[in-house]
Simulated scan of single mutants.
Amino acid sequence: MKTNFGLLIVYCFCFFNGNSLLAQEQKIEVRPYTIQTTYEKLKNDYPFIKPIEALKSGPFISMENLIYTSIEGRDLKADVFIPKDTSEKRPAILLVFGGGWISGSKANVKPLAQHFAANGYVAVTVDYRLSTEAVYPAAVKDLKAAIRWMRDHAEEFHIDSKKIAILGNSAGAQLATLVGVTGNSEIYKDEQNTTSDVVQAILNIDGIVSFTHPESEEGAIAAKWLDGKRRENLKNWEEASPLTHVSETTPPTLFVNSAQPRFHAGRDDMLQILEQHNIYNEVHTLPDTPHSFWLMQPWFYTTLQYCLSFLGRVFNTE
């Protein structure tokens, strides 16, 4: 096994000739999903791009690797970036990294979090359990725990607990949207914690909102996270689809999308429901862009500006 990636073996059993059972191996390479690996993948097709970098300093205070919850001996950690001017409470945003529910890390959203903090928001990035460690709904419950932790520490972090948003990119956008449309849901309820996990805004950066929509593609990576293929575990595929839960209580929602249609699965149906309930929403598609555009310049700043403009309208901070 190479040292730069893991190898996940998924066994699929099939009958042949009616009397023999053979095992076929489907190998999924768990490749590192980082800013640098994304740059290496995209640079030949987009020679003008540059990878984003974390800020060495700025008008914010950094508090890194704080434990926000512990599950079965596993400490899940958060980084918190707080504007230096703490004279008043600030709106907050939880940032969820992507990586197919199987890879990635909070380092990927650190630059974006720092820029949010530099613009007056308390920004939080977190670890959550990937599918190699725990399948659905573990990651959803982790992120809801993070929202509750932010509220429980609102005084310490100078958070306005009535103004909390959640942002995700790629698989992180699917997760962020699911968390956003299931505020205080019985499905993911934590009997040990009565703090609200409701958010007041959703920011979806190129993530699907349905696993079962006609526009969706069934893949082995999603099946790994959802604990079975669609035909084997349809309940999870439907329940984990944010579109299933969209209603009149869904918060204002922003979509920033690439030019790759498969990452828009279910979006237009969700927008239709939002419009029916007069829920504020925005959609922006960046032309001629690949997936993971938010990790590269010049698209990073465009994405940031769309997000800041949306939050400014929703939270009246313009």
Rank of each mutant, 00 (worst) to 15 (best):
K2Y: 02
N4C: 05
L8V: 04
I9K: 07
C12T: 15
C12Y: 05
F13T: 15
F13K: 13
F13P: 11
C14E: 11
F15D: 14
F15H: 08
L21D: 08
A23R: 13
Q24T: 15
E25V: 13
I28S: 00
R31Q: 03
Y39Q: 07
L42H: 11
N44R: 14
D45F: 06
D45R: 10
Y46Q: 09
F48I: 15
F48T: 14
I49V: 13
P51T: 09
K56T: 15
G58A: 06
F60H: 05
N65M: 05
Y68K: 08
G73D: 12
R74T: 15
L76D: 14
K77F: 03
D85N: 15
T86I: 14
S87H: 12
R90S: 11
A92Y: 02
I93Y: 04
L94E: 04
F97R: 01
S103N: 08
S105W: 00
N108C: 12
L112C: 10
Q114V: 06
Q114R: 02
A117P: 11
G120R: 14
Y121D: 08
V124C: 03
R129Y: 00
S131I: 01
E133T: 09
A134T: 03
A134R: 01
Y136A: 01
A138G: 11
V140M: 04
V140D: 03
D142M: 07
D142A: 13
I147S: 02
I147H: 00
M150V: 12
R151P: 11
H153T: 10
A154E: 12
H158E: 08
D160E: 10
D160F: 02
S161L: 02
S161K: 09
K163Q: 13
N169Y: 06
N169H: 10
S170P: 15
A171Q: 01
A173T: 07
A173F: 01
L175D: 02
G180A: 12
I187C: 08
Y188K: 07
K189A: 09
E191F: 02
E191L: 07
N193W: 00
D197E: 07
D197F: 01
Q200V: 13
I208L: 14
V209S: 06
G219E: 05
G219Y: 00
A220P: 04
I221G: 02
L226T: 01
D227P: 03
D227M: 05
G228N: 03
R230W: 00
R231V: 13
W237Y: 01
P242Q: 09
L243Y: 09
L243F: 06
V246M: 05
V246P: 00
V246K: 03
E248W: 05
E248Y: 10
P252D: 07
P252S: 08
P252K: 02
S258V: 05
H264L: 07
R267T: 14
D268W: 01
I273C: 03
Q276F: 01
E282A: 12
V283D: 10
P287Y: 00
D288M: 05
T289G: 09
H291D: 12
S292K: 06
F293W: 06
F293M: 11
M296W: 01
W299K: 09
Y301G: 13
T302C: 10
T303D: 12
T303C: 15
L304I: 11
L304V: 14
Q305A: 15
Q305F: 12
L308N: 12
G312L: 03
G312V: 05
R313F: 06
R313P: 08
F315H: 05
